[in-house]
Amino acid sequence: MESSRVIIHARFANDGSVREIGECPSGISPQDWFNALSRHSANGYEALSGGRGIFRLAPAAIEQAKAAVLSPAT
Rank of each mutant, 00 (worst) to 15 (best):
M1W: 06
M1Q: 06
M1V: 10
E2G: 12
E2V: 15
E2T: 15
E2A: 14
S3M: 12
S4C: 04
S4W: 05
S4H: 07
R5C: 14
R5W: 13
R5T: 13
V6K: 02
I7K: 01
I7V: 15
I7W: 05
I8Q: 01
I8D: 00
H9I: 14
A13N: 15
N14W: 02
N14C: 12
N14K: 13
N14S: 14
D15Q: 11
G16R: 14
G16V: 00
S17T: 15
V18L: 06
V18P: 00
R19A: 14
R19W: 09
R19E: 14
I21C: 10
I21Q: 08
I21T: 04
G22E: 14
E23F: 04
E23Q: 05
E23S: 05
C24W: 02
C24N: 10
P25D: 01
S26Q: 10
S26D: 10
G27T: 00
G27I: 00
G27S: 01
S29P: 11
S29Q: 10
P30L: 08
P30E: 04
D32W: 03
D32Y: 01
D32L: 07
W33G: 03
W33Q: 05
W33R: 02
F34W: 13
F34P: 02
N35A: 14
N35I: 00
A36Q: 13
A36W: 01
L37T: 03
L37G: 02
S38G: 14
S38K: 09
R39C: 09
H40V: 04
N43W: 02
Y45Q: 06
E46S: 07
A47Q: 08
L48E: 10
L48D: 09
S49W: 04
G50H: 14
G50Y: 07
G50M: 04
G51Q: 14
G51S: 14
G53E: 06
I54D: 07
F55Y: 11
F55G: 06
F55N: 05
R56N: 00
R56Y: 05
L57G: 00
L57Q: 00
L57P: 04
L57Y: 00
A58Y: 09
A58F: 08
A58D: 08
A60C: 10
A60S: 15
A60Y: 08
A61L: 09
A61N: 08
I62L: 15
I62T: 00
I62A: 09
E63Y: 01
Q64G: 04
Q64P: 03
A65F: 05
A65D: 06
A65N: 02
A67C: 03
A68M: 10
A68D: 12
A68P: 01
A68N: 09
V69K: 00
L70N: 08
L70C: 04
L70H: 02
L70D: 03
S71A: 12
S71E: 10
P72K: 07
T74L: 15
T74H: 12
